[in-house]
Computed example of a mutant assay.
Amino acid sequence: MKNLLIVICLIFAFILLYQIGGKLMSINKQDKIKVEPFLAFGNDRDVFFKGRVIKAYTQKRPSSRNNWFSNIISAAKRYSGSSVPLAKVEITFQEKSYTVCTDENGVFELQIGDSKPSTEQNELVTFQVVEPVTRKSLIAHMEVTRYSGSMGVISDIDDTIIISHSTDIGKKFWLSISKNAYTRRPLPGVSEFYKKITDDKSLPIFYVSSSDWSLFDLIKDFLRYRHIPEGPILLKDKHINLRNIWKSGGGDHSHKLQKIELLMEMFPKMQFHLIGDSGQHDPEIYAQVIQDYPGRVKNVFVRIVGKLDASRESDLKSLHGFEHFHFFESSEEAIEIVEKESIIN
Results as ranks from 00 to 15, higher is better:
98 Y>V: 04
98 Y>P: 08
99 T>R: 12
99 T>C: 07
100 V>R: 08
100 V>C: 05
101 C>A: 04
102 T>M: 04
103 D>T: 03
104 E>C: 09
105 N>K: 07
108 F>I: 05
108 F>Y: 07
109 E>C: 09
109 E>K: 05
109 E>N: 11
110 L>H: 10
112 I>M: 03
113 G>M: 05
113 G>Y: 02
114 D>H: 15
114 D>M: 15
115 S>L: 14
115 S>F: 06
119 T>G: 08
119 T>M: 14
121 Q>T: 08
121 Q>E: 15
123 E>F: 03
123 E>Y: 10
124 L>H: 13
124 L>I: 12
124 L>Q: 11
125 V>T: 07
125 V>P: 06
127 F>M: 07
127 F>Q: 04
127 F>Y: 14
128 Q>F: 09
129 V>G: 05
130 V>Y: 14
130 V>Q: 11
131 E>I: 12
132 P>W: 05
132 P>G: 04
132 P>C: 04
132 P>E: 12
133 V>E: 15
133 V>F: 13
134 T>C: 15
135 R>M: 15
137 S>T: 11
139 I>G: 10
139 I>H: 14
140 A>T: 09
141 H>K: 11
142 M>P: 04
143 E>L: 12
143 E>N: 12
143 E>W: 07
145 T>M: 02
145 T>S: 05
145 T>R: 06
146 R>H: 14
150 S>G: 11
150 S>M: 12
151 M>T: 08
151 M>V: 08
152 G>V: 08
153 V>Q: 00
154 I>S: 01
155 S>K: 06
155 S>V: 08
156 D>Y: 05
157 I>H: 02
158 D>A: 10
158 D>V: 06
160 T>H: 02
160 T>Y: 00
161 I>L: 13
162 I>N: 14
165 H>L: 07
167 T>Y: 11
167 T>I: 12
168 D>N: 15
168 D>P: 00
168 D>K: 00
169 I>E: 10
170 G>K: 09
173 F>V: 06
173 F>R: 04
175 L>V: 05
175 L>W: 02
175 L>G: 00
176 S>P: 01
182 Y>S: 10
182 Y>F: 15
182 Y>I: 06
184 R>K: 13
185 R>F: 05
185 R>E: 14
186 P>H: 02
187 L>C: 10
187 L>V: 14
188 P>Q: 12
188 P>T: 08
189 G>V: 00
189 G>Q: 01
190 V>P: 01
190 V>W: 00
191 S>V: 00
191 S>H: 00
191 S>F: 00
192 E>F: 01
192 E>K: 02
192 E>G: 00
193 F>H: 05
195 K>G: 12
195 K>V: 06
195 K>E: 13
196 K>C: 09
196 K>M: 09
198 T>I: 05
199 D>E: 08
201 K>C: 12
202 S>P: 07
203 L>N: 01
203 L>Y: 05
204 P>G: 03
205 I>S: 01
207 Y>G: 05
208 V>Q: 03
208 V>K: 01
209 S>P: 07
209 S>Y: 02
210 S>P: 02
212 D>Q: 07
213 W>I: 02
213 W>G: 03
215 L>N: 03
217 D>W: 09
218 L>E: 06
219 I>S: 00
219 I>V: 13
220 K>A: 09
220 K>H: 10
